[in-house]
Design a protein around this nucleic acid. Sequence first.
RNA 1: GGGGAGAUACCAAAGUGGCCAACUGGGGCAGACUGUAACUCUGCUGGCUUAUGCCUUCGUAGGUUCGAAUCCUGCUCUCCCCA
Length: 376
Amino acid sequence: MKFELQHTDINSKARAGKVTTDHGEIQTPIFMPVGTVGSVKAVHQRELKEDISAQIILGNTYHLNLRPGIGILEQVGGLHKFNGWDKPILTDSGGYQVFSLAQMRKLKEEGVTFRSHIDGSKLHFTPENVVDIQRSIGADIIMALDECPPGDSDYKYAKSSMELTHRWLQRGVNHFKSTDPKYGYSQTFFPIVQGAGFRDLRKQSAETIASHNMEGNAIGGLAVGEPTEVMYEMTDVVTDILPADKPRYLMGVGTPANILESIALGVDMFDCVMPTRNGRNGMLFTSEGMINIKNKRWADDFTPVDPNGSCFVDHHYSRAYLRHLIISKEMLGSQIASIHNLAFYLWLVGEARNHIIAGDFHQWKTMMVKKVTTRL
RNA sequence: GGGGAGAUACCAAAGUGGCCAACUGGGGCAGACUGUAACUCUGCUGGCUUAUGCCUUCGUAGGUUCGAAUCCUGCUCUCCCCA
């Protein structure tokens, strides 16, 4: 993987860059649609490419390991072959499941044991075997196994959790360096900053992560219950330390406003389930504000889903029709809403990039944050 | 023509003397959702007003009772079975 830093904003820490992988280039800042089980829910690959202009998508180690299982993925030659997505794929390590499936896991120095949410069977993840699994999945970008502690963790817990993540990181890096890609293209490995809501821990973690000198770095453990200002503050602290010549990935974030603010703080890569999940639940993000399409006021609004939108569904369908579909729980509703939201997210980061390059990012962002947080 | 069952809030359906403004589900109206256990979850859904308050409601008209959606009588309507 290669990263080229192309422009840096004068009035903020925003950057425009280019990541190059064996599966193609990624223009940053970028948003990466989440496809947990190898599928961006309700969206097919041609739509991802042509309507949404996605440049990279996510998969998840925990979920893909359960289904279809590593055997199948190795047999077919990796996830790209399996799901028909020939652009880059990044896989999360299962660190988020340490947080989201907290009731069904046990943390130990060695690793983490999950109770499968599907059949209750035991799964053991270590910093080493999640590298193996991600190599088998064929991810272009492999994430380190981390512990993602809740946003309201106290200092003592946050510190010991961070230290565990750091020890795991060393093991993960060692293992990554001693193993090879399985399918003939290169894979890279991103470590993850932790430290919950504490500046000194975040600082310490960012320094530790940076010292491993990997090709890119991630910021984890944010947007997990802490106040938004804390999230920005932590991001700010961390991006001051992480090297400028490597991409920075803020994991799991976020709302359109979160993304704009974080771009201004020097983040290059984002992923979030919000455009897809909230879309399925009837929430649309647009350049003029947020729409709860289930609200009665849209029942007879026969204007386009998003007149400013860039993709087919935005102009082909009306708000009234989309509301009808979502309320009737029709699959097409989920599809339209997901495609629209993802296309908007990709448009948003693309515009951010254009404005960074043009030099007026800061004022554009200020205006855009206002719009995007409006409720229509 | 004979016999039987039933009418409860927008719909369906519990409740068969006080704990009933009335279970529950659907529908409706809002809200939530941030590295996806999520096409999911939460709240409200008679009126006034928001209170340990009042008023009006369980087909309809009366009655019994301290007290009725619940018991009795008349009426209206619906459904099922047999002719």
